[in-house]
Nucleic acid binder design. Structure first.
Lengths: 207, 207
DNA sequence: CAAACTCGATACCGATCGGTACCGTCTCCC
DNA sequence: GGGAGACGGTACCGATCGGTATCGAGTTTG
């Protein structure tokens, strides 16, 4: 077998789920498109929900690795890296198969907050916010803990807007807003603790 | 009949669609919950898609009327009204049945951009952006045409974030970002045309 | 009072949903 | 060469999908 059935199921399902939505894609479609037999599917995955979780988990890791590589690839000084996130997003938005954030989409589709899929999606966003936090801290922002969720809100806003308008422009729009946000000097009140954080060795990137 | 079947179908469908998603709610559920007979449903609506469009259209009008009333209800000077939008959102986010923006949700669920539901949703967002534009123009912002889509991005970002985090806090987060954005003075280059726009009588609110 | 109309209930349609069971084949490894 | 697994194909399951047809009771209207 050239490519294992399990691998084909995961990649096929990821494409279909992202393009059309999880609920919209039946197991039948995945089997037909991947060429995997019905029994083989249930040998590898206990249920469709199980497949969904594994697909999202894989996408989570790959997406974050992509973002980190993209930001690092611009080869900018640390101070400019937080805003570079929006340049990376712009590239993503321009792809003709772009259909928003798979995790936002999943959280909206899976109304039940307790579902496994919903929680994987929520966890993904937390991880990305953590990455933004380290970018801001490395850039010397004393208020990184406050700004990171604000940048995350801009990221999500840009993604949703890009889906709505069908163009990559919302990335530069969000970057423009972020510039205005970062132009404000951080509140000097928490400088002492902020400097302590800034000097702390930042071990990893996003996690 | 106390309340007409058509009305019951619309209100029941709107609640269920918003709470669980359009695709997740079958016609059967709507019939059972509204107490309307199957035949009566198809006497009033050509199809489920038809019902979806009418539900969204009604919600569009009511949502925009709510936002306008909320902003006007704060009784603020025109200069402070654009930011008051986020205060209104905060109230909305705090409701325990809050599950995001029905139109964003619809656009994400209905992957097909050409579907009627998707277009109603897109139109709604355009209308709201238009309202933000008039609020900004009335506030004397020369750059209202540029800022309005930026505020809209913040609104959508706040909504998605509120769904994700399950708290109303993203409304104040977005307001904070908007304050930083509006603190910037508009580019004086287009002042002449801007003043002309500012003096133009603004006939309506959102449209 | 009777015609006209709206209504809820029910049976039914073909299609698809997620999931199980079984079968024959192919490949890998000892 | 010969098991042992992994594989694809297919038949089948009960449940549900959106949608149609029919029927009888209740209400409105002339």
């Amino acid at each position: 077998m050239a490519v294992k059935a399990r691998e084909r199921l995961l990649t096929t399902a990821e494409e279909l789920f992202y393009a059309e939505g999880i609920r919209a894609v039946g197991v039948e479609r995945i089997l037909a498109e991947s060429g995997v037999g019905r029994a083989s599917f249930y040998r590898h995955f206990a249920s469709k929900d199980d497949l969904v979780v594994e697909v999202l988990s894989g996408r989570d890791h790959r997406w974050r690795a992509w973002l980190r590589a993209a930001v690092e690839g611009y080869d900018l000084p640390a101070a400019d890296r937080p805003l570079a996130v929006f340049d990376a997003l712009s590239e993503r938005f321009a792809r003709d198969d772009f259909r928003g954030c798979a995790f936002i989409n999943t959280m909206i589709e899976a109304a039940d907050r307790d579902s496994a899929a919903h929680q994987v999606a929520a966890e993904h966003k937390k991880s990305v916010t953590g990455y933004l936090d380290t970018l801001l801290a490395d850039a010397g922002r004393a208020d990184h803990a406050e700004v990171a969720p604000e940048l995350m809100l801009l990221v999500d806003g840009a993604i949703v807007t890009a889906v709505r308008e069908g163009t990559p422009e919302p990335a530069v729009r969000a970057k423009h807003i972020a510039e205005a946000l970062l132009a404000r000097q951080p509140d000097p009140g928490d400088t002492r603790e902020a400097v302590r954080r800034r000097l702390r060795v930042v071990t990893g990137g996003m996690r």
